[in-house]
Amino acid sequence: MPGREHRCAALGLMATLGIGFLVLAASQTQAQKRQKAPPVAKEAPHTQMQEVTREQQPGAKEAVQADVSARNVAVTSSFNGIEIVIFGAVDNSQQSSAESGYYDVMIVVEGVPGRIVVRRKNNVAGLWLNTSSATFDVVPSYYAIASTRPIDEITTEEFRASHGVGFQHLRFTPAFGQTQALSTEDLKEFREAIVRLKEKQGLYIQDNFRVAFIGKSLFRATIELPANVTVGPFETRVYLFREEKLLSQYTVRLNLEREGLERHLHRFAFGYPTLYGLMTVAIALAAGLIASTVFRRAAH
């Protein structure tokens, strides 16, 4: 058998793959650099913050302003969740110190709403299998509430219902054209299951004492976006309350985007699935042939 030619062919394949990996690796490190550098540069609210401390006038109407530590988060191959710092300040703060508890702040971070299927297992002849399901639309992929005190002490029930704040007020709507007709109680159970499972996955978070004032007008909170979070735009809403009354509200957006190798592979897999499949097969064939050549030579 012409072993020499096979070895040459395998070496050629190895070289091609090697170069391919180097190119991919290079694009990835670039993406990581991009991820690390810009968030600091992009935060420009320092000027605003200085104004806040300058304009303290008693009796004037309070307003809240806020920003997040990273407005653009790159999801690269090394992405393993991220902690976001949300900070803000109360304009014309009337409170005497950080500890006075004069104001209450509530922060809601919401991911892209999407369609979700909930399934329920049943025991059929001794075996557990999914027998019923419900599909909901407008289910936020991520939902976190952080506040200075429990939200039912800060806000009224009407407020929470009208603003869709709190797990029980999320506006999941049963998708049109459900295959199974479901009773109201079933729907309620399915809805609760979504919240419970999302909480377990760290995608729905409620923390009643996460927001802390660190001065008479400055406050901050940290919120975790776990590794399994869905990429896309996130809306961060900051509410300022005084005795259950909404004084001011502020909205910041943050964006999670695939970058580098991660972005290329994902786009390739979902945008050109056939080509992607063929590439995977080519990699598999090359890997197998290279391995057999390398190990056969090592054995001799």
Binding site: I116, R196, K198
Partner: peptide, 8 residues
């Protein structure tokens, strides 16, 4: 857990 969730 009897329930499970998944993307549609």
């Amino acid at each position: 857990d009897l329930y499970s969730i998944g993307a549609a």
